[in-house]
Design a protein around this nucleic acid. Structure first.
Lengths: 199, 199
DNA sequence: TTTAGACTATTTGTATGAATTAGTCGAAAA
DNA sequence: TTTTCGACTAATTCATACAAATAGTCTAAA
């Protein structure tokens, strides 16, 4: 299920399309509400009819991107059977995806650097989603006897800590351009991490 | 061997003592060179005789703190025999230490938030040290048959990735006060991580 | 070799007014 | 009723100029 609120509305979609394009090109601050309105040929109040604040539009844009990532990861995970494989894919595709977004929205990375709160809400949502996925993978692994027996609090702790790890790695990958980690290296880390709970 | 340059000089030590106290209380920016000079009852040029810039003093202060941490970690590691235990201690004590420093130098955390480059150089030094320690632990583990056979490039990769993980976790722990991870949780993560290379 | 104290050049802070811009509102169009 | 417009406001940001603070230098002396 998608996290973002009903974007079904074609006008909401239009707003997000326009906003995404402008944010990509000019960043968050330099894109004014009037810019966005002009971009889609409407007036400012139309925007405010659909979104309460500029931040809300921004968050919707980010959520859309996160959703995309998530769908990609899910699709790739469906193609494999085992828990360790699923984990590796989740780990590498989410982290590699972060790097990608960092390049795509390069301007805007500097802004996040200065105002980390911009991503606070969306990242929290993302976190709880990832943690859930991690738990699911672990449970699947246990049922497939690929993972050692763990009680639910151990499962929860593992998911929490791995999520924390992913999140902190992700934020470094996003913010520091000199962190060049290949997908292979990420996969190695993922495998090592998962080996720790393997049977 | 200590990373910091010869602090043997009693006056250098005095400067660092004074600077540390002031940085702790007022942060980096609000502490002027004259403040430091006054604190130790000397004039500004005395400071510049021993250190080229204010940043250099700052880095020396940070290096001192890092050295302390390192010594503590080393001492604690000596008390145990096995590689997994050593790893757990290194992992938890360095990361818990980061949290401690964050509280001690609380003002200054905000400054690092805005000028991450302040810590760039020192963190690089720290990185290479930690990576080395990680390799050593792994090699010890292999010789003790606690760790599976790995060739040197695998060892290097493992050390690199674990170091990356520690670094990114550390920076989050340092910067975000709402990240409260207990030492037990850190230990759990350390153990999981190490299990991944265990025999 | 080390220190003091005056000196400079640069950075930082502040005050103020102008310009932008996020967000509101009432009326009109669809 | 739902959606849009354009004028409006209040708050924030920006530009400028001026004042203060401060990092770093230099010369002479201890």
């Amino acid at each position: 299920m998608s996290v973002s609120q009903n974007i079904k509305d074609p006008i909401r979609e239009e707003i997000l399309r326009g906003a995404t394009e402008l944010f990509e090109r000019y960043g968050f601050k330099k894109t004014t509400m009037e810019d966005i309105a002009r971009q889609i040929g409407k007036s400012k109040s139309a925007l405010y009819y659909y979104y309460k604040t500029k931040e809300e539009i921004f968050e919707a844009v980010v959520l859309q991107e996160i959703d995309k990532q998530r769908m990609e990861a899910s699709a790739a995970m469906k193609k494999v059977e085992t828990a360790p494989e699923k984990f590796r894919i989740l780990f590498t595709s989410l982290l590699a995806g972060v790097k990608e977004k960092a390049n795509k929205f390069s301007l805007f990375r500097a802004e996040v650097y200065e105002n980390p709160f911009l991503l606070n809400n969306t990242m929290k949502l993302r976190d709880s989603y990832v943690e859930e996925q991690l738990r699911d993978i672990l449970i699947l692994g246990i049922s497939r006897q690929e993972v050692k027996m763990m009680n639910s609090s151990e499962i929860g702790l593992w998911a929490k800590m791995v999520n924390l790890t992913m999140r902190s790695l992700g934020s470094k990958l996003f913010l520091e351009d000199d962190w060049n980690i290949s997908k292979e290296q990420l996969a190695f880390l993922a495998d090592t991490l998962f080996q720790g709970v393997a049977r």
